[in-house]
Amino acid sequence: MNRQDRADAVDREMAVSLLPDAAVQALGRWWSENASAHADGTPGAHTVRYAPSRWVQITPWPSALALTSCGGDAGVSRAEVASAVADALRREAFREALVATYVWGKGKRGTPGGSGPAALRKILAAEGLDAALGSAVSALREHGSRQAYAVLHRRVPGLGPSFFTKFLYFVGKTVSSATGPQPLVLDRVLAKRLRQMATAVGRASGYDLDGCVATWVWADGNWSPHRYEVYLSFMHAAAWPLATAGRHAHHPTCSNTPCSPPHGRPPADGTAREKRCALLFPGGVWVGTARWRLHRSSRCRTRRRPGAGAVRTPGRRQQAAGRSRPPSPQ
């Protein structure tokens, strides 16, 4: 097996094992503590604080956000951002939609001269931005989330996956994906959690004994379209057992489309049928707030340790095959 084969094998193992008990328990604790703030069963009330005056040089400025002439802090909820993006899409005001999602994603983090307003100004000045955003919206509608991600991947200088997936996430509240699940946010915090899970699964299955494959595919950024598709599939599948069991059935990242089970399983009765199965995390952000741990990833070694070339599979040992293949999708 080469590195991509091992990555694919770990992905398959994760698709079977799904969430570890520690994560499920942490989700239950989070929901018990926060259910009252999400009475409608969606993350719409989740609000981010920001300082409008920091963004005074940003145009176009969405009307859903507080005026930049206002002093102090303001708040904007997911529901308000979703409404602002829906309005912008109706007018094909893609820049305005991006600004709303970027301010929500950044909040009060960053510095005026660094990340935040300065970075957004550079993104808004990029050549071909409108065409890229419009093409991503069309790709989601006509093809699906992976293709929409691929349109923006490495397309606009300064606009990386951590923020353009926020744009896609809110676009997905208005535009249905042609195939597959709706877009979710994928950022460095989520990638770290998935890297922890992949490390534990890879070690247990023997496909990634030292965690190097997990470190490679779940890096801190610049994930490939293939990796984003794997991520969406995993999140969708991991949510389904909780929904069918009636646990956290209305937990965040629901849309108003019927719940569609993975792998052709019949839909569950009750509340799990009412909304889509991406229920686990509010746009993919919850993982960073719940407190749970997996085995720490060992540091990726540049020199192969003795025996690392032999990949252990359940019930046997298989010597890695040194066949060549095209550049990997990660």
Rank of each mutant, 00 (worst) to 15 (best):
M1D: 00
Q4H: 15
V24Q: 02
W31T: 09
E33H: 12
A37P: 12
A37K: 15
A37W: 14
Y50I: 01
Q57Y: 13
S63M: 14
L67C: 06
S69Y: 06
G72R: 12
D73S: 15
R78F: 04
D87T: 09
E92K: 15
F94M: 11
R95E: 15
L98V: 08
V99M: 11
K106E: 15
G107S: 09
G110V: 07
S115T: 12
P117D: 06
P117Y: 03
R121W: 05
I123V: 10
G134M: 07
S138W: 05
G144A: 06
G144K: 01
A150Y: 03
F164C: 08
Y169H: 08
S176P: 11
S177G: 11
P181D: 13
P181C: 10
V189R: 13
L190N: 03
R195E: 04
Q196T: 04
A198Y: 00
D208E: 04
G221L: 06
W223T: 04
F234V: 06
M235W: 04
H236P: 02
G246W: 08
P261D: 14
P262E: 13
C277G: 07
H295M: 15
P306A: 02
V311M: 00
R312Y: 09
T313E: 13
Q319W: 03
A320F: 04
R323S: 08
P327K: 15
